[in-house]
Amino acid sequence: MSPDSPLPIDVRAEMRSAAAWLADGGAAPNGRAVTSDLTIDEALLLHSIGWEPVELVFGVSVTSVPVGVWTWGRGEIGAASDAHNLAVHTAAERLGRECAKAGGHGVVGVQVSVEVNPHHVDVHLVGTAVRPVEGKKPGQTFVSDLSARDFVLLSNAGWSPLGLSFGASFIYAPRRDAATAIRQSSQNIELTNLTEALYSARESAMERMQASGLAMSAQGVVGVRITEGPMRFARHVIGFTAWGTAVRLVADNHVYLKPDMVLPLDDAVVQFEAQSLRGR
């Protein structure tokens, strides 16, 4: 056993003493109940940097999209981007408020679900509020879609998440007039107006994400995920979204991890999921 990574305890003895403790009446500690959707691995990792979960927190916002915005037009659909922006912003704010109320310093592992419907945009956020065990005063409450594991790794490297950084852009697919379409159908050429429209929409979604990160005085955005594609209910509308967690170096210098190399002997077996018992 290398001194770097021992399991410090004898599991068998620990299990026995826990069972004996319970049989002995094992009273619950005083204090407020804790709820958390972290896995045990995440909880252990969080403990290793002196943090603990506090409360499962939610943020939801359903925002209306005025009628008529999806019908064919030109250029960007400002109302849709606005609705998206408003819904995400409100939901994230609620999440942060629930976290602060529960005494958390930030929310990690936020699951983001965005649904764009013809008349409303639904944003659902779920995460676990966390705090340091040694009651330090919370600074600005952060909201992050990084997993607890990523949060721990980042913290150890000297970085801190600041908040969700996001941007969206919805555009009408540009129309070509009939003559152009016919002319182009017999040629292998770039459809410059299409290229331009999609390119610029993608850029503006990312630009908005960057802007929201800069507004938090972040030094960067990690774990960016982008979605793009036509709307289910309006194939001529293409939506782009970009998401990530804004981060900032809080230590004096970046701390290098210097990972070990391992050669695993497992196949890519699925880790045990109790549900697999059912053969479903």
């Binding site: 056993m1 290398s2 990574s5 021992p6 399991l7 594991r149 790794l153 991890l257 391992v262």
Partner: peptide
């Protein structure tokens, strides 16, 4: 044998 604890990158 007691497994070693690692965090995979």
């Amino acid at each position: 044998p007691r497994p070693t604890v690692i965090i995979s990158l």
